[in-house]
Amino acid sequence: MSRAATTASESRSLHRFANPARFLRAADAVYPWALAGLVVSLGIGLFLALFASPPDYQQGDTVRIMYVHVPSAWMALFVYASMAAGSASYLIWRHPLGVITAKAAAPVGAAFTFLALATGSLWGKPMWGTWWVWDARLTSVLILFFLYLGYIALMNAFENAERGQKAASLLCLVGVINLPIIKFSVDWWNTLHQPASVSRIGTPAIHESMLWPLGLMALAFTLYFIVVLILRTKSEMLNARLRALGVADLGGR
């Protein structure tokens, strides 16, 4: 394709963000705003979550665990869906940025999934009377955690970086089947984990005084993802440049 044709098709579609130089400019412009928004939303969110919101009439103060648990679980799914989009754009259109951002996002997604599992456990002990149960929701989220770990391991398992990228991207796409299973597990299998109370048809089933801290914490976690994704994506790009120069990477993974 000629240079002019490339530019024209790029400017018409989302594909223009697959241009690394353009991505870097956008990322550098977004970064300070995302960081500032993170600090503000996290500050207000934590204040509401810990001080200003009431204890639940059944759960008491353990309801405050939900302000970390629910956004973590949402992000665990959102990050995986983003990685799948990146992996697809890499496998289908050969966009290198797709796999670079997916690779950069994986540890963030794994961290959120770990937090969803661990904070759920800390809530389950006093409220359900058990740290863990092989409930459909819990089990499918545990599988998501292993998918993240498998993706990271596969990415770094090959001497040839491109083979690792292809294998890991394929695993990421296959694992997408787990996302609807997680989402609908609470409806399909009537076990212990409660069904959705925010993202359902009609109005949310929780009071405003609890919806605000939840929403702000969810915003803060989303901005945290953007901030760390920018840092890690830039780092991956530099690593690729270092590799191209034939220099061994001393920066670690």
């Binding site: 810990l50 008491g60 103060d61 353990t62 937090l115 800390l122 006093p126 760390v228 840092l231």
Partner: peptide
Amino acid sequence: GYAAFVWPCFGLAAAVMIYLF
């Protein structure tokens, strides 16, 4: 009365997220 569950939850989240950043 739920200090042993609420604070580890917030502490763990803070530790993991700060470390990763």
